[in-house]
Design a binder for these strands. Structure first.
Lengths: 229, 229
DNA sequence: GGTTGAATGTGACTCAAATCACGTTTGAGA
DNA sequence: TCTCAAACGTGATTTGAGTCACATTCAACC
C-alpha cells in the first residue's frame, strides 16, 4: 500500500495545519512523510494500537469509530481532505483511543512517530503546527462532550446534518445513509429515519436514498443558536 | 479580591505543569502571575466570557459547570490544588465554553492572557508547559466523551465516585452530596440516591449525610477495567 | 426487465432513567 | 433543645429512545 510517489510540498500546502509555515519547513516535513493508499473498508489503525504517527487526509474520507462495551459502534467523526488524525500517544495517551477506517478510496500522508517527536524539539514554527492540531482536537472534543452531555437525540441528528452538509451543490445535501448518520449521532437507524420523516413533514429536508437534501438549514440549528440570529 | 502577596516560585512548584521547568523560568512565570481569592459560591468566570487567562488552583476547590438549554446544570469537573483551567481562547475558541465557580474558599494564581501569548513566542521550555496542559485536557475530554457516550448512568456515577475519592483517610470517602454527584455524573439526585442505596445493600459503600464512605473501591470499576485485573 | 442486496419506512413493545410528589432525616445555629 | 433549611429516601408515573419484526423501495448489474 506504500505509494512510491513522494509527498510534495505543494500537496502539504493543501492541509490547513501547514498553511502558516514557511516553504523551507513544509518541504522538510514533506521529506519525512510517507504516502499511503487505502481501499474502502480497510482499517488504518485499531483502537488500542500504540502508534504515535500522525495521519493527514489528502483525498477521500476516513471514519473514526469507537466500539463501546455493549458492542455498539459509535462513529466519532469523519475526516475529509486536509484533516489530521492519530498521534494520540503524543498527547500523553499510551494508545489510540479509537479506530480509523477508510470509508472511500483514500490517500493519506503519514508523519512517523519519531519524526513528530523531533519536530517539537527543534523548531518553534513546527510547534505551532502541533498547537494548531491540538486546538482543533480540543475544540472538537469539547463539542462532542457538550453535544453528548446535554442534547437530545433529535438535536444530535440535526447537528450531524449541519456538520456534514455539502454546500457545494444547490440545494445543499448530506451524502450519508441513515445508518451512518445514526452511528455518527450516537443512535440507531430507526430513530434517524423517524426523525428525518418528521423533518420532511415540516419541509426542512427531502429524503432520497443515500442522500438527504437540506431545504432549510436554519431550521436545523439548536434553539440557543437560533436565538442569536 | 486581589491579594498583594506575590506568587512565589515555591508556590508554583506545587503545580504539576511546572514540575519539569528550570527554576529560572518558574520564577519568571511567577513574576507574571496574580494571586486571587474567592469565597464559596463566587463566580470566577462565566460561560461565554472571552478571557484567555489561565487559572491555577493553589488551594480550595473550583467547580466547572455548564448550563444546558433545558436549564439543567451539568457539572463538568472539580478542580483541586494544582489543577489548571481557563485559557480556552488560546485554544482557538473565541469564548469560554463553561462557567467556573468557587466551591470552597479558594486561592488561585492567574496567568494573564498576554503573558500566556508571550510565553509561546519566546521559550520552547514554556511551550512544553502549554503542551502538558493541552494533553491533560485532551485526555480529560476524551474520557468525558467516552463516558457520556457509551456508559450507563450507574457506571457514570461509579466513575465519579472513583474520580473524587479521597484516599487520605481510611476508609476512603467522597465528600459530595447526592445533588453534586448527580450534577457531575449528568443525572438527577433521585437516581444517585437510588443507585447509592443499591451499592449500600451490596456493601460497597456507606451513606452518611454529605459524605459517602467507600468500603470496596474495586467494586466500582467498570466491567472492562475489572476484567484486566 | 428481473433479480438481489442494500437502504428505508413503520408499528408494537420494552426499558432505563427523568419527573413528580411527597415524607423523613440530619445538622448547624438561635 | 428547638427550629429550619438542606440533604436524603422512596413510590408512582411518564417518556425518550432503543429493540424487534417485517414490509417496502431503491439502485445496480447481469
Amino acid at each position: 500500500m506504500v505509494d512510491r510517489a513522494p509527498v510534495r510540498t505543494s500537496d502539504l500546502r493543501e492541509i490547513p495545519a501547514f498553511h502558516s509555515l514557511p516553504d523551507a519547513q513544509v518541504s522538510s516535513v514533506a521529506a519525512l512523510m510517507v504516502r499511503r493508499h487505502f481501499a474502502p473498508g480497510q482499517i488504518i489503525f485499531m483502537e488500542g494500537d500504540k502508534s504515535g504517527a500522525m495521519w493527514f487526509v489528502f483525498s477521500g474520507r476516513v471514519k473514526i469509530i469507537k466500539q463501546s462495551l455493549n458492542g455498539r459502534i459509535q462513529g466519532l467523526c469523519l475526516m475529509d481532505r486536509g484533516k489530521c488524525f492519530g498521534g494520540c500517544s503524543l498527547f500523553d495517551m499510551d494508545h489510540n483511543p479509537a479506530t480509523a477506517q477508510a470509508l472511500t478510496e483514500v490517500t493519506l500522508f503519514i508523519l512517523p512517530e519519531q519524526a513528530v517527536g523531533q519536530m517539537g524539539e527543534n523548531d518553534p514554527n513546527l510547534v505551532k503546527v502541533l498547537l494548531h492540531i491540538y486546538s482543533q482536537r480540543l475544540e472538537h472534543l469539547a463539542r462532542v462532550s457538550e453535544v453528548l452531555g446535554s442534547w437530545t437525540v433529535a438535536d444530535r441528528i440535526n447537528d450531524c446534518l449541519l456538520t456534514y452538509i455539502n454546500r457545494s451543490v444547490q440545494p445543499p445535501v448530506v451524502d450519508l445513509t441513515h445508518e451512518k448518520l445514526a452511528s455518527l449521532s450516537g443512535t440507531v437507524r430507526e430513530v434517524v429515519t423517524r426523525h428525518l420523516s418528521l423533518l420532511e413533514k415540516e419541509g426542512v429536508v427531502h429524503n432520497t436514498s443515500g442522500h438527504i437534501i437540506i431545504l432549510n438549514p436554519d431550521a436545523l440549528l439548536p434553539p440557543c443558536a437560533a436565538e442569536s440570529r
